[in-house]
Design a protein around this nucleic acid. Structure first.
Lengths: 155, 155
DNA sequence: ATCAAACAAGACTAAAAAGTCTTTTTAATA
DNA sequence: TATTAAAAAGACTTTTTAGTCTTGTTTGAT
């Protein structure tokens, strides 16, 4: 039958957010090595469009997740002390807002425990679990295995 | 601080898919009452744009999830025997394809158990749980409490 | 002081998703 | 068999998301 896709790319995070998470991990990894990195390098390493990556990094700076140093020799970095403080949740909220955390799975405004949509009770534990994971996963967790070469950011 | 959203509406299902699920539940509920319903009625009841709803219903017909009867007195319906056979998974796949089921949370092509992205091991159980729930939740489950007035499709 | 190498900001463009409109096809019924 | 009420089909428009380009600002090094 093979009918082509109709609506698309429904995944947890927006594409922008995916780039943001990858970039943050890369910067943290370089920072843990004492190195500062620029947009060009980051975009190359995480395979993202360079000017768009610039935009996303700006946003991460405003959200206080990464630091930027302007001027010659500048770049982006994250102080190591912050690795355990920065959570996946922070990045996701900074980029995608909190729809993922709040929005009804069927798009209903009034959906709640008291007035649930037909999928509410099945969906709720899944989302709570996701929220907990995002809240509990720090940048330190993410880069640990990345630095040791057991996880990857390629393709 | 109040910086406005940057990237948006990241939830599990596309908006189109949300409408599709709501529409399917409504049609099933009417069918369980022996009633056939038309686009106008459906759009009104699930609060979705009428012509767009038509498009979505067409797609659900092609995917064999709902039946359509053309001509005067026609409309949409779902045979009751199918209520337990039709799963949330079927609707989601028909509309959103299988990105939600397969795609790496960070957008990496090559991510797998063998070559995981930094979030893979934390994400996998969440997704597996979601998949299981979508696989196990039938239309019969969804309309049971809806028909009894314990769940809602409003707003 | 000047220059060059960075990031910042904002206007702009492109692509994808969401939504509309018009015409055609179907089928019940008067 | 003409009418009418429905869905189907497909071209079209709008909005949102993704991505680009140009210009400005900052700052270290010469």
């Amino acid at each position: 039958m093979e009918l082509p896709n109709f609506a698309q790319i429904s995944t947890m995070f927006s594409k922008t957010c995916e780039y943001a998470i990858r970039a943050t991990i890369y910067i943290a990894s370089e920072s843990s090595d004492g190195k500062r990195c620029g947009i060009k390098e980051i975009a190359r390493k995480i395979e993202s469009p360079e000017p768009f990556t610039g935009k996303i990094l700006q946003r991460l700076v405003k959200a206080n997740i990464i630091h930027s140093i302007k001027g010659n020799g500048g770049g982006f970095e994250i102080p190591q002390e912050e690795f355990t403080k920065i959570k996946m949740e922070d990045i996701v909220r900074a980029i995608d807002g909190d729809d993922l955390f709040n929005r009804c799975s069927l798009g209903l405004h009034e959906c709640s425990d008291d007035q649930p949509c037909p999928f509410h009770h099945k969906y709720k534990p899944i989302r709570e679990n996701l929220k907990k994971t995002l809240r509990d996963t720090s940048l330190a967790d993410l880069i640990l295995k990345f630095n040791s070469g057991d996880t990857y950011l390629k393709l």
